[in-house]
Design a protein around this nucleic acid. Structure first.
Length: 580
DNA sequence: GCCGTTTTCGGCCCGACTGTTTTCAGTCG
């Protein structure tokens, strides 16, 4: 973990404890803000630490925090942090992560219910002990129980956006080892799943021992779980397990196929092989001679093994992109040409300093142009999202003028004036039609009432989809990966209406959202609804989240033609103008 | 705890929703 990330954790923990013990909320927020600033910071804070003025020059970091940062860089710890963490039971902070449980409730559970961690909370619920506490009705207790179940069910999987950079850095390191051959991450990460159980890396090497040693001794390893000739396994300080498998060059394709999964896809492939008188394993596709002993150990030559493509071909299949390997019909369907990152030419959902973003219009435009986009949309929050700096009508109209002025001034990219308009709980939009009609693009998104029942959620989203001035429905369910389930609308109804009304549904590429999720995208694609992949960027760096959205689109069988962000400028702009 | 400087102290954008209440506390964004 980088110094920035470690310090971010420390400040987040201080914020959590301060919140729990009822400190001034603004002080709490200041700590959380420092954590956020540190996490977003592109420069290593350690390089600034010996000059306090440099630290204090960073927005959000004052004298006190600068001192703590310097203290950490010098000593590896922050005394105030240790003191604070010592004030509450260790397991209590984790309860704050459970959706619906805030500091007041957790404090009350601790003070009045003797709850000190997740186990004692579950025990108290089971004993019915919570019912005696204030504000703990049946419904609240049931909500807490469900939240715990949800957090536990998804809690041990890392988000794609956490696992991918880790895997890429490990792959890069291993490739640099002398004698290293091919090195590639496989598993659910290669398939682009939204969460990852562990990172699987496949490699060939002239001297496998050297690669293995480099792997087990790399920075960030907390514990070596296994260190054998063909398989090494470590647990990182980040809490993620990483497996390295070393294979022979001849078996590369078979091993890649096998370790990429999914298990269900592999089972289907093996069944298919069986029907063709062959056996498929991680060493290759072999003729089935009726002998149960592994063919590769008996010197049997494989029918195919060096590449995935050869193996699929031998099974009368085209090469199937990893993202589709979920046994969701990929062995029998016509495989479309899936969208690729290089197809993306526009980002249509981003925030500037006008609301809660960190970029100016010019900075956003430059970042989008640097990525080779022909179009970028400025879509700041609407008035209902007060805490996200939502714009009043007057502010919005001024902002629109500023965006249009920037569009005139800046060459090489079209800058659209838009808004991320709240879809209110009843489906109404947060601005009147006259205001919306002034915008080049309207992205309508749900932000509140994300626990409403499915019928209401469906009506709410259908209202927005049918609204003639809405172009895109932003993060349609409002779910947060591992954190919040979000809305459960009738997806079929939504995608059907979206196709009928020509409203695009967003894949929010932020790995915390990935909303729509893969299966919803598939439904939309099958219904003929358009998809828009956007980063919802608040910083220039967040424009780089686009690959996660594209992966999710690919998992939903999305083609470039079905994604408005991949359209040429002329087609996209004409489509936007049509919805007016 | 941070920030600004018509303020070195006093402010720091709060409105919607839920579930508990009988007028509101807690959570979320």
């Amino acid at each position: 973990m980088s110094t920035n990330a470690q310090l971010a954790t420390i400040f987040n923990e201080m914020a959590a404890v301060l919140e729990l013990i009822g400190a001034n909320p603004f002080r709490v927020n200041a700590h959380a803000r420092v954590a956020r600033v540190l996490k977003d910071l592109t420069v290593d804070v350690a390089t600034l630490a010996d000059e306090p003025k440099q630290l204090e020059a960073i927005e959000g970091i004052g004298k006190a925090s600068a001192k703590k940062i310097a203290e950490f860089v010098a000593t590896g710890a922050v005394a105030e942090h240790e003191r604070l963490v010592g004030e509450v039971p260790g397991g209590l902070l984790a309860l704050l992560e459970i959706p619906g449980l805030g500091p007041k409730t957790v404090k009350m559970l601790w003070d009045d219910g003797g709850v000190t961690d997740l186990a004692s909370l579950k025990d108290a619920i089971a004993r019915g002990a919570l019912a005696d506490l204030p504000r703990m009705g049946d419904k609240t207790i049931r909500n807490i129980t469900e939240s715990i179940a949800f957090a536990e069910q998804s809690g041990d999987r890392a988000r794609l956006g956490i696992a991918m950079p880790l895997a890429e850095s490990i792959v890069e390191r291993l490739r640099a080892v002398p004698g290293a051959g091919r090195v590639q991450y496989t598993g659910s990460l290669r398939r682009g799943r939204e969460t990852i159980g562990d990172i699987d890396i496949l490699a060939t090497a002239r001297e496998p021992e050297k690669l293995a040693e480099s792997f087990t001794t790399m920075p960030g390893v907390a514990k070596v779980l296994a260190a054998g000739r063909t398989k090494c396994s470590v647990r990182l300080e980040a809490g993620i397990q990483v497996d390295l498998r070393l294979v022979d060059e001849e078996a590369w394709g078979a091993a890649l196929l096998y370790f990429s999964g999914s298990k269900e896809h592999n089972v289907a492939l093996r069944e298919r092989a069986g029907k063709r008188g062959a056996r498929l394993n991680e060493y290759g596709l072999f003729p089935d001679d009726g002998d149960d002993a592994p063919p590769q150990q008996r010197g049997i030559a494989p029918i195919a093994s060096r590449t995935e493509k050869e193996i699929y071909a031998a099974l009368d299949l085209p090469w199937i992109p990893p993202e589709l390997r979920e046994d969701r019909g990929e062995l029998t369907a016509q495989i479309p040409k899936l969208i690729e990152l290089a197809d993306i030419r526009a980002d249509l959902h981003a925030h500037t300093v006008a609301s809660d973003g960190k970029m100016t219009i010019d900075e956003l435009a430059a970042a989008a142009r640097d990525r080779g986009y022909h179009t970028v949309a400025v879509t700041d929050h609407s008035q209902a999202s007060a805490v996200a700096g939502g714009l009043t009508v007057e502010d919005l109209l001024r902002h629109v003028d500023a965006v249009h002025e920037a569009n005139e001034r800046i060459d090489g990219i079209t800058i659209l004036a838009g808004s991320e308009v709240d879809i209110l709980a009843d489906g109404h939009l947060d601005y009147d039609d006259e205001v919306l009609a002034r915008l080049d693009i309207v992205v309508a998104s749900p932000h509140v009432a994300l626990g409403q029942d499915p019928a209401k959620a469906t009506r709410r989203l259908l209202t927005a989809i049918r609204h003639p001035l809405v172009h895109v429905i932003g993060h349609p369910t409002g779910r947060m990966v591992n954190r919040r389930e979000g809305l459960h609308p009738d997806i079929e109804a939504l995608v059907t209406a979206a196709a009928e009304h020509g409203t695009a549904l967003e894949i929010n590429a932020n790995d915390m959202r990935l909303d729509l999720r893969d299966v919803h995208v598939r439904a939309a694609v099958e219904a003929g609804a358009l998809i828009s992949i956007n980063t919802d960027a608040h910083t220039p760096g967040q424009l780089e989240l686009m690959p996660y959205g594209v992966l999710t689109g690919r998992r939903g069988w999305l083609t470039a033609d079905g994604c408005i962000n991949a359209w040429p400028a002329k087609r996209l702009h004409a489509w936007l103008a049509e919805n007016r």
